[in-house]
Amino acid sequence: EAHAAIDTFTKYLDIDEDFATVLVEEGFSTLEELAYVPMKELLEIEGLDEPTVEALRERAKNALATIAQ
């Protein structure tokens, strides 16, 4: 499951495998979680700032909209 989540994140969020791995290690496994989890939870991840989190959430929401079509 972790590998599938990493693949999904790299494909749809335009991030590298290392960043995707950090997200999975922090407990995220779906685009929905990244799109809708409280921003505070993402900001608790070391190295993430508000602009990065906002961009990540926007990419996740856009990916979900694209997949739904």
Rank of each mutant, 00 (worst) to 15 (best):
E1N: 15
E1R: 05
E1F: 03
E1P: 12
E1M: 09
A2E: 12
A2K: 15
A2R: 12
A2S: 12
H3Q: 15
H3C: 10
A4G: 11
A4W: 09
A5W: 08
A5S: 11
A5R: 08
A5V: 14
A5Q: 07
I6R: 08
I6V: 10
I6C: 05
I6E: 04
D7N: 09
D7G: 09
T8W: 12
T8Q: 10
T8I: 15
F9V: 02
F9Y: 03
F9D: 02
T10P: 02
T10H: 07
T10C: 08
T10L: 13
T10Q: 12
K11F: 09
K11Q: 11
K11Y: 09
K11I: 05
K11P: 01
K11G: 04
K11V: 05
K11C: 07
K11W: 07
K11S: 07
Y12Q: 04
Y12L: 09
Y12E: 05
L13V: 02
L13P: 00
L13C: 02
L13E: 02
D14V: 04
D14K: 06
D14I: 03
D14A: 08
I15K: 00
I15N: 00
D16G: 10
D16I: 05
E17A: 12
E17Y: 13
E17I: 15
E17F: 13
D18Y: 13
D18H: 14
D18W: 14
F19C: 08
F19W: 08
F19H: 04
A20M: 02
A20I: 04
A20D: 01
T21C: 08
T21N: 11
T21L: 13
V22E: 05
V22R: 15
V22I: 14
V22F: 14
V22T: 12
L23T: 00
V24N: 04
V24W: 15
V24I: 12
V24Y: 14
V24A: 08
V24D: 01
V24S: 05
E25G: 11
E25F: 08
E25Q: 14
E25D: 11
E25P: 00
E26R: 15
E26F: 15
E26M: 15
E26L: 15
E26P: 01
E26T: 14
G27D: 01
G27T: 00
G27N: 02
G27C: 03
F28N: 01
F28K: 01
F28A: 01
F28T: 01
F28P: 01
S29T: 15
S29Q: 12
T30C: 05
T30Q: 05
T30N: 07
L31H: 01
L31V: 05
L31F: 04
E32T: 07
E32R: 07
E32I: 08
E32P: 03
E32K: 06
E33Y: 05
E33N: 05
L34H: 00
L34W: 02
L34D: 01
L34N: 00
A35R: 03
A35C: 07
A35I: 14
A35F: 08
A35T: 07
A35Y: 06
A35P: 02
Y36K: 13
Y36T: 15
Y36H: 14
V37E: 08
V37G: 14
V37A: 15
V37P: 07
V37I: 11
P38F: 03
P38D: 15
P38W: 02
P38T: 09
P38M: 03
M39R: 09
M39T: 12
M39E: 07
K40T: 13
K40I: 13
K40C: 09
E41H: 10
E41F: 06
E41N: 10
L42M: 09
L42F: 09
L42H: 04
L42P: 03
L42I: 08
L43C: 05
L43Y: 07
L43Q: 06
E44V: 12
E44S: 14
E44M: 14
I45Y: 04
I45Q: 03
I45S: 03
I45L: 09
I45M: 06
E46C: 08
E46V: 14
E46S: 14
G47A: 07
G47D: 06
G47K: 07
G47Q: 06
L48T: 06
L48G: 02
L48H: 03
D49Q: 05
D49G: 05
D49I: 04
D49H: 06
D49N: 09
D49K: 05
D49L: 05
D49S: 09
D49W: 05
E50T: 10
E50C: 08
E50N: 07
E50H: 11
E50S: 10
P51A: 15
P51E: 13
P51N: 11
T52R: 10
T52S: 10
T52E: 07
T52C: 08
T52N: 06
V53A: 15
V53C: 09
V53L: 12
E54R: 14
E54N: 10
E54A: 13
E54M: 05
E54V: 14
E54Q: 10
A55Q: 12
A55D: 11
A55C: 09
L56A: 02
L56P: 00
L56S: 01
L56R: 00
R57H: 06
R57K: 14
R57D: 01
E58L: 06
E58A: 06
E58W: 02
E58S: 06
E58G: 05
R59V: 05
R59Y: 03
R59A: 11
R59D: 04
A60R: 00
A60W: 01
K61S: 07
K61A: 09
K61L: 12
N62W: 04
N62R: 15
N62I: 14
N62V: 14
A63H: 05
A63E: 03
A63K: 03
L64E: 02
L64M: 08
L64G: 03
L64S: 03
A65F: 03
T66Q: 14
T66Y: 06
T66R: 10
T66N: 13
I67F: 02
I67C: 05
A68V: 09
A68E: 11
A68Q: 13
Q69R: 13
Q69P: 08
Q69N: 13
